[in-house]
Amino acid sequence: MQPNAEMIAVNHPPVAFGKVGVLLVNLGTPDGTDPVSMRRYLREFLTDGRVIEWPKYLWYPILFGIVLRTRPAKVGKAYQSIWNTDRNESYLRTHTRSQAEKMAASLAGHPHVVVDWAMRYGQPSIASRIDALHKAGCERILLFPLYPQYAAATTATVNDKAFEALLKMRWQPALRTVPPYHDDPVYIDALARSITAHLATLDWEPEVVLTSFHGIPKSYFTKGDPYHCQCMKTARLLRERLGWTKEKLMVTFQSRFGPEEWLQPYTDKTVEKLATDGVKRIAVINPGFVSDCLETLEEIAVAAGETFHHAGGEKFTHIPCLNDGPDGMRVLEHVVRRELQGWV
Rank of each mutant, 00 (worst) to 15 (best):
C229T: 15
R140G: 02
A153K: 07
A73N: 14
W244N: 04
S81T: 09
Q99V: 04
I188Y: 11
T252F: 08
L332I: 11
R176T: 02
I282H: 12
D184M: 02
A152S: 13
P259T: 07
R71Y: 14
R97I: 03
R241M: 02
R170K: 15
R241Q: 14
N286K: 07
L210T: 11
T177M: 06
A283M: 05
E306M: 12
R338Q: 12
E205H: 08
A303E: 15
E139P: 03
T47S: 14
V331Q: 07
Y220M: 08
R50P: 02
Q341P: 05
G18M: 06
Y60I: 11
L242N: 09
E339L: 05
E164S: 14
A118F: 06
G328I: 04
I282M: 09
R170M: 10
I188V: 13
N4Q: 07
T29G: 00
V51T: 06
T157G: 03
S98Q: 14
K273A: 07
K161N: 10
K135M: 02
T96I: 06
D292L: 02
R97S: 05
V290Y: 09
P145M: 09
G122E: 04
L274V: 06
Q99F: 01
E298W: 08
N26L: 04
A304Y: 10
Y57P: 04
L199H: 13
C293H: 15
M232D: 15
Y147N: 05
S81G: 03
I52A: 07
F144N: 04
H334S: 06
V113A: 00
P35E: 15
S81Q: 15
A304E: 10
V15S: 12
P180W: 12
K19E: 00
E101A: 03
T276L: 13
K233Y: 04
